[in-house]
Design a protein around this nucleic acid. Structure first.
Lengths: 215, 215
DNA sequence: ACTTGTCCTGTCATGCCGTCAGCTTACCGA
DNA sequence: TCGGTAAGCTGACGGCATGACAGGACAAGT
């Protein structure tokens, strides 16, 4: 399905080529987590990977292209986030557990991939469709599942029918993503990591069911 | 209080100098809203302002320095956002109005300054303290007021005392900022602009008071 | 007109970008 | 074993942004 990995000039990459390519990606990922996106230079990535800039351009059109590749990899893993919401009951205690698991899964995923997610967020916010698509891919599955959950609660009359389930779910997911992105920020603010999770779960539960979780 | 505007090499800027400086800032702001941050070059800004790159470097150490300046300007305006929350009653109908006004004010502020706010967000997420400080300055006033509101509700027993008011307020504000940043994203997703506001107000009201707003 | 201090620009060294031709290496069939 | 072929890599180059400087243009006061 993925076809073959190809160089910019159309050749198919063999074992060695794929290895160099991967090494470049790894080094890029590392650089992104240690220096600002704007300052990541092709030459630095190449040097770090023990190769020349020209080699970089054989596999990627530019830095952005390589970042997109990294992001795609991550998005595949992110698809698993659906499992955090799908087929979960939002009633009673299990509802509380559902929101807690969702929050926990989200935060740890973000912590793991924070460097690339920052760049993806920026690209998406700047209107780049390719980045936006990737962001969707990650958030969409969660959002859709959450949307269904909200609809169910609407059917039970717990949430006003005038409210758009997609808007609620989307806002909640955006909240999770934003808080996750600024996790470090919160703590230098006096809010401890440990205080964050319960509050988020509480908010998510409220948003989905319209009710506070049981103690 | 701000003292005098100074050039990089320490001279004080006169009338003409300040005008050029401001023109450069304006042009930079414009560029930021039309092209990706990573691609904004000093030479383009200078050309757009009808001057030379050397002039740019007389007033700013680099592009980032100029962006910081723009951000500071914006932050001053953002301080007014406090008025949206301070001294508001969260009881009954007026509580519903409070959350609506907050959401509306927030979204429009973000819409107005989206280009710079994107960069500030990125800088803050990347851990740059200067950007983080600015982000705080804007969000802090709102967050603090919201925190107080949450505390009041806690005193009335409507919100679990175990929850950290700062974490709740911070999360809500993060949600507003995130949704505002991706306003355009939502609509290409099938969620209309008009659906967003009521859902957000509903969530904010729920988060602050623990109760649904009256119809 | 002269002086003073502000303001702008021409120019230059440096370093990164992105591309190409050409060299080396690995694989494969005869 | 031995070419042949395609993959893989790099040195080198023109082009452009960066950032520094010194000197010229300009306005304002005397």
């Amino acid at each position: 399905m993925t076809g073959q990995v190809r160089t910019v000039d159309g050749r198919v990459a063999g074992r060695r080529g794929q290895a160099t390519r991967q090494k470049l990606l790894d080094c890029l990922g590392e650089m992104l987590s240690t220096s600002p996106y704007r300052d990541v230079k092709v030459i630095d990535v190449a040097r770090k990977a023990g190769t020349s800039p020209a080699t970089f351009y054989q596999y990627f059109p530019d830095v952005e292209g390589a970042v997109l590749e990294l992001a795609e990899e991550m998005a595949k893993e992110g698809a698993n986030l659906t499992d955090l919401v799908a087929d979960r009951s939002w009633a009673g205690k299990s509802g509380a557990a559902a929101s807690e698991d969702l929050v926990e899964g989200f935060l740890s995923f973000w912590r793991k991939h924070d460097a690339i997610l920052r760049v993806v967020d920026l690209g998406a916010a700047e209107g780049d469709k390719r980045f936006y698509k990737i962001r969707m891919k990650i958030l969409n599955s969660v959002t859709n599942s959450l949307t269904d959950a909200v609809k169910e609660q609407q059917a039970k009359g717990r949430i006003d029918d005038d409210l758009n389930p997609g808007a609620i779910a989307g806002s909640l997911v955006a909240m999770l993503a934003a808080v996750a992105a600024h996790q470090k920020g919160f703590q230098s603010w006096g809010v401890k990591q440990a205080d964050l999770r319960p509050s988020l779960s509480w908010l998510v539960h409220l948003g989905v069911t319209g009710r506070k979780p049981p103690k």
